[in-house]
Design a protein around this nucleic acid. Sequence first.
DNA 1: TATAATTAGTTACATAAAGTAACCTTTAGA
DNA 2: TCTAAAGGTTACTTTATGTAACTAATTATA
Lengths: 104, 104
Amino acid sequence: MDTSIICPRFETAISLLSQRWTGLIIYQLLSGPQRFSHLTEVIGISGRLLSERLKNLEVQGLVTRTVYPETPVRIEYALTEKGHSLKPVMDEIQNWSQTWIDPA
Amino acid sequence: MDTSIICPRFETAISLLSQRWTGLIIYQLLSGPQRFSHLTEVIGISGRLLSERLKNLEVQGLVTRTVYPETPVRIEYALTEKGHSLKPVMDEIQNWSQTWIDPA
DNA sequence: TATAATTAGTTACATAAAGTAACCTTTAGA
DNA sequence: TCTAAAGGTTACTTTATGTAACTAATTATA
Protein backbone atom coordinates (compact mmCIF):
# COMPACT_ATOMS: atom_id res chain seq x y z
CA MET A 1 0.00 0.00 0.00
CA ASP A 2 1.42 3.29 -1.10
CA THR A 3 0.53 6.17 1.16
CA SER A 4 1.94 8.87 -1.11
CA ILE A 5 -0.56 11.62 -1.69
CA ILE A 6 -0.59 14.44 -4.17
CA CYS A 7 0.33 17.80 -2.63
CA PRO A 8 -2.95 19.36 -1.40
CA ARG A 9 -1.98 22.83 -2.55
CA PHE A 10 -1.20 21.57 -6.03
CA GLU A 11 -4.49 19.72 -6.03
CA THR A 12 -6.38 22.87 -5.08
CA ALA A 13 -4.61 24.86 -7.76
CA ILE A 14 -5.23 22.36 -10.50
CA SER A 15 -8.85 21.84 -9.53
CA LEU A 16 -9.27 25.58 -9.98
CA LEU A 17 -7.74 25.44 -13.44
CA SER A 18 -9.62 22.25 -14.27
CA GLN A 19 -12.91 24.01 -14.03
CA ARG A 20 -14.20 24.59 -17.50
CA TRP A 21 -13.68 28.15 -18.79
CA THR A 22 -11.76 29.34 -15.76
CA GLY A 23 -8.34 29.13 -17.37
CA LEU A 24 -9.58 30.85 -20.48
CA ILE A 25 -11.13 33.69 -18.46
CA ILE A 26 -7.89 34.27 -16.57
CA TYR A 27 -5.87 34.10 -19.78
CA GLN A 28 -8.13 36.62 -21.42
CA LEU A 29 -7.98 38.99 -18.46
CA LEU A 30 -4.19 38.93 -18.57
CA SER A 31 -4.47 41.38 -21.44
CA GLY A 32 -6.24 43.90 -19.20
CA PRO A 33 -9.56 44.72 -17.51
CA GLN A 34 -12.58 43.81 -19.58
CA ARG A 35 -16.32 44.06 -19.55
CA PHE A 36 -18.81 41.25 -19.17
CA SER A 37 -20.13 41.34 -22.70
CA HIS A 38 -16.66 41.49 -24.19
CA LEU A 39 -15.65 38.38 -22.28
CA THR A 40 -18.67 36.45 -23.48
CA GLU A 41 -17.89 37.34 -27.10
CA VAL A 42 -14.18 36.63 -27.06
CA ILE A 43 -14.33 33.45 -25.02
CA GLY A 44 -17.58 32.07 -26.41
CA ILE A 45 -19.09 31.40 -23.01
CA SER A 46 -22.72 31.95 -22.07
CA GLY A 47 -23.75 34.72 -19.70
CA ARG A 48 -24.95 32.18 -17.21
CA LEU A 49 -21.62 30.45 -16.83
CA LEU A 50 -19.50 33.59 -17.13
CA SER A 51 -21.46 35.13 -14.30
CA GLU A 52 -21.00 32.04 -12.17
CA ARG A 53 -17.28 31.76 -12.91
CA LEU A 54 -16.57 35.43 -12.26
CA LYS A 55 -18.32 35.23 -8.90
CA ASN A 56 -16.19 32.26 -7.91
CA LEU A 57 -13.03 33.95 -9.07
CA GLU A 58 -13.95 37.02 -7.04
CA VAL A 59 -14.51 34.92 -3.94
CA GLN A 60 -11.18 33.22 -4.48
CA GLY A 61 -9.45 36.57 -4.78
CA LEU A 62 -8.33 36.21 -8.38
CA VAL A 63 -10.60 38.80 -9.96
CA THR A 64 -12.09 42.14 -8.97
CA ARG A 65 -15.35 43.65 -10.16
CA THR A 66 -15.43 47.41 -10.52
CA VAL A 67 -18.55 49.45 -11.23
CA TYR A 68 -18.11 52.74 -13.11
CA PRO A 69 -21.34 54.71 -12.63
CA GLU A 70 -21.40 56.20 -16.10
CA THR A 71 -24.21 56.09 -18.57
CA PRO A 72 -24.64 53.36 -19.43
CA VAL A 73 -23.04 51.83 -16.38
CA ARG A 74 -19.71 50.18 -17.07
CA ILE A 75 -18.54 47.20 -15.09
CA GLU A 76 -15.03 45.93 -15.49
CA TYR A 77 -13.44 42.72 -14.42
CA ALA A 78 -9.72 42.68 -13.71
CA LEU A 79 -7.15 40.32 -12.27
CA THR A 80 -5.82 40.80 -8.77
CA GLU A 81 -2.16 40.23 -8.01
CA LYS A 82 -3.04 36.62 -7.22
CA GLY A 83 -4.77 36.30 -10.56
CA HIS A 84 -2.03 38.02 -12.47
CA SER A 85 0.58 35.77 -10.94
CA LEU A 86 -0.82 32.92 -13.02
CA LYS A 87 0.81 34.47 -16.08
CA PRO A 88 3.83 32.11 -15.96
CA VAL A 89 1.44 29.16 -15.93
CA MET A 90 -0.42 30.52 -18.94
CA ASP A 91 2.86 31.27 -20.70
CA GLU A 92 3.98 27.68 -20.27
CA ILE A 93 0.68 26.35 -21.60
CA GLN A 94 0.99 28.71 -24.56
CA ASN A 95 4.54 27.57 -25.09
CA TRP A 96 3.60 23.90 -24.95
CA SER A 97 0.71 24.40 -27.34
CA GLN A 98 2.95 26.01 -29.93
CA THR A 99 5.16 22.93 -29.99
CA TRP A 100 2.67 20.12 -29.59
CA ILE A 101 -0.73 21.18 -30.87
CA ASP A 102 -1.40 21.17 -34.59
CA PRO A 103 -2.59 24.50 -35.92
CA ALA A 104 -6.36 24.38 -36.35
CA MET B 1 -16.94 45.07 -32.48
CA ASP B 2 -13.74 43.42 -31.45
CA THR B 3 -12.68 40.55 -33.67
CA SER B 4 -9.79 39.42 -31.49
CA ILE B 5 -9.90 35.71 -30.89
CA ILE B 6 -8.03 33.56 -28.46
CA CYS B 7 -5.22 31.53 -30.08
CA PRO B 8 -6.75 28.21 -31.22
CA ARG B 9 -3.74 26.18 -30.16
CA PHE B 10 -3.82 27.69 -26.70
CA GLU B 11 -7.53 26.99 -26.55
CA THR B 12 -7.00 23.36 -27.49
CA ALA B 13 -4.27 22.99 -24.90
CA ILE B 14 -6.25 24.54 -22.10
CA SER B 15 -9.39 22.59 -22.93
CA LEU B 16 -7.29 19.46 -22.51
CA LEU B 17 -6.08 20.59 -19.11
CA SER B 18 -9.54 21.85 -18.19
CA GLN B 19 -10.95 18.39 -18.34
CA ARG B 20 -11.43 17.17 -14.81
CA TRP B 21 -8.70 14.79 -13.57
CA THR B 22 -6.56 15.05 -16.69
CA GLY B 23 -4.05 17.46 -15.20
CA LEU B 24 -3.78 15.39 -12.06
CA ILE B 25 -3.20 12.19 -14.05
CA ILE B 26 -0.42 13.79 -16.05
CA TYR B 27 1.12 15.27 -12.93
CA GLN B 28 1.07 11.91 -11.22
CA LEU B 29 2.61 10.14 -14.22
CA LEU B 30 5.47 12.64 -14.24
CA SER B 31 6.94 10.62 -11.38
CA GLY B 32 7.12 7.53 -13.57
CA PRO B 33 5.05 4.73 -15.13
CA GLN B 34 2.23 3.52 -12.95
CA ARG B 35 -0.47 0.91 -12.81
CA PHE B 36 -4.21 1.46 -13.09
CA SER B 37 -5.06 0.62 -9.51
CA HIS B 38 -2.24 2.76 -8.15
CA LEU B 39 -3.52 5.75 -10.08
CA THR B 40 -7.04 5.32 -8.75
CA GLU B 41 -5.76 5.19 -5.17
CA VAL B 42 -3.37 8.11 -5.35
CA ILE B 43 -5.59 10.42 -7.37
CA GLY B 44 -8.91 9.43 -5.85
CA ILE B 45 -10.61 8.90 -9.18
CA SER B 46 -13.07 6.13 -9.99
CA GLY B 47 -12.16 3.30 -12.31
CA ARG B 48 -14.78 4.40 -14.76
CA LEU B 49 -13.36 7.85 -15.26
CA LEU B 50 -9.71 6.83 -15.04
CA SER B 51 -10.33 4.33 -17.80
CA GLU B 52 -12.02 6.96 -19.94
CA ARG B 53 -9.32 9.56 -19.35
CA LEU B 54 -6.44 7.21 -20.03
CA LYS B 55 -8.03 6.16 -23.33
CA ASN B 56 -8.36 9.79 -24.37
CA LEU B 57 -4.80 10.57 -23.33
CA GLU B 58 -3.61 7.59 -25.35
CA VAL B 59 -5.50 8.79 -28.41
CA GLN B 60 -4.02 12.25 -28.00
CA GLY B 61 -0.55 10.81 -27.79
CA LEU B 62 0.21 11.86 -24.23
CA VAL B 63 0.20 8.44 -22.59
CA THR B 64 1.17 4.90 -23.54
CA ARG B 65 -0.31 1.68 -22.21
CA THR B 66 2.06 -1.25 -21.89
CA VAL B 67 1.02 -4.79 -21.08
CA TYR B 68 3.53 -7.01 -19.26
CA PRO B 69 2.30 -10.61 -19.67
CA GLU B 70 3.30 -11.74 -16.23
CA THR B 71 1.14 -13.42 -13.65
CA PRO B 72 -0.86 -11.57 -12.70
CA VAL B 73 -0.69 -9.42 -15.80
CA ARG B 74 0.81 -6.00 -15.19
CA ILE B 75 -0.29 -3.00 -17.19
CA GLU B 76 1.59 0.24 -16.94
CA TYR B 77 0.70 3.70 -18.07
CA ALA B 78 3.48 6.11 -18.91
CA LEU B 79 3.89 9.56 -20.42
CA THR B 80 5.10 9.97 -23.97
CA GLU B 81 7.49 12.76 -24.87
CA LYS B 82 4.48 14.94 -25.60
CA GLY B 83 3.06 14.15 -22.20
CA HIS B 84 6.34 14.61 -20.41
CA SER B 85 6.83 17.99 -22.02
CA LEU B 86 3.99 19.30 -19.85
CA LYS B 87 6.35 19.22 -16.89
CA PRO B 88 7.13 22.96 -17.08
CA VAL B 89 3.41 23.70 -16.99
CA MET B 90 2.96 21.50 -13.93
CA ASP B 91 6.03 23.04 -12.30
CA GLU B 92 4.55 26.50 -12.71
CA ILE B 93 1.23 25.43 -11.25
CA GLN B 94 3.07 23.85 -8.35
CA ASN B 95 5.08 27.01 -7.93
CA TRP B 96 2.00 29.21 -7.98
CA SER B 97 0.18 27.00 -5.50
CA GLN B 98 3.04 27.24 -2.99
CA THR B 99 2.77 31.01 -2.98
CA TRP B 100 -0.96 31.56 -3.26
CA ILE B 101 -2.84 28.60 -1.88
CA ASP B 102 -3.22 28.21 1.87
CA PRO B 103 -1.98 24.91 3.20
CA ALA B 104 -5.00 22.64 3.75
C1' DT C 1 -44.80 60.10 -23.49
C1' DA C 2 -44.15 55.68 -25.30
C1' DT C 3 -40.79 52.73 -27.72
C1' DA C 4 -36.57 50.84 -28.46
C1' DA C 5 -31.66 49.87 -27.39
C1' DT C 6 -27.78 48.62 -24.50
C1' DT C 7 -25.44 46.47 -20.59
C1' DA C 8 -25.23 43.13 -17.24
C1' DG C 9 -26.94 39.87 -15.79
C1' DT C 10 -30.90 35.82 -14.12
C1' DT C 11 -34.26 32.02 -14.74
C1' DA C 12 -36.09 27.75 -16.49
C1' DC C 13 -35.41 23.85 -18.85
C1' DA C 14 -32.70 20.12 -21.69
C1' DT C 15 -28.50 17.61 -22.35
C1' DA C 16 -23.95 15.95 -21.16
C1' DA C 17 -20.48 14.75 -17.81
C1' DA C 18 -19.16 12.93 -13.38
C1' DG C 19 -19.98 10.08 -9.12
C1' DT C 20 -21.19 5.51 -7.11
C1' DA C 21 -21.52 0.86 -6.59
C1' DA C 22 -22.11 -3.56 -8.29
C1' DC C 23 -20.50 -6.66 -11.68
C1' DC C 24 -17.30 -9.18 -15.17
C1' DT C 25 -12.98 -11.54 -16.83
C1' DT C 26 -8.57 -13.59 -16.50
C1' DT C 27 -5.04 -15.91 -13.98
C1' DA C 28 -3.31 -18.20 -9.86
C1' DG C 29 -3.19 -20.28 -5.53
C1' DA C 30 -5.33 -22.89 -1.42
C1' DT D 1 -13.76 -25.94 -6.53
C1' DC D 2 -13.54 -21.65 -4.07
C1' DT D 3 -11.31 -17.40 -3.29
C1' DA D 4 -8.37 -13.43 -4.42
C1' DA D 5 -6.31 -9.69 -7.18
C1' DA D 6 -5.87 -6.64 -11.26
C1' DG D 7 -8.02 -4.17 -14.63
C1' DG D 8 -11.57 -2.79 -16.06
C1' DT D 9 -17.16 -2.22 -17.62
C1' DT D 10 -22.19 -1.49 -16.80
C1' DA D 11 -26.24 0.61 -14.92
C1' DC D 12 -27.98 4.16 -12.45
C1' DT D 13 -28.00 8.79 -9.83
C1' DT D 14 -26.41 13.38 -9.23
C1' DT D 15 -24.15 17.46 -10.81
C1' DA D 16 -22.48 20.56 -14.36
C1' DT D 17 -23.06 22.68 -18.66
C1' DG D 18 -25.62 24.50 -22.81
C1' DT D 19 -29.46 27.19 -24.65
C1' DA D 20 -32.69 30.53 -25.02
C1' DA D 21 -35.85 33.58 -23.19
C1' DC D 22 -36.45 37.07 -19.79
C1' DT D 23 -35.42 41.14 -16.41
C1' DA D 24 -33.82 45.77 -14.58
C1' DA D 25 -31.72 50.07 -15.08
C1' DT D 26 -30.55 53.78 -17.96
C1' DT D 27 -30.60 56.56 -22.06
C1' DA D 28 -31.72 57.67 -26.82
C1' DT D 29 -35.32 58.16 -30.25
C1' DA D 30 -39.93 58.75 -32.58
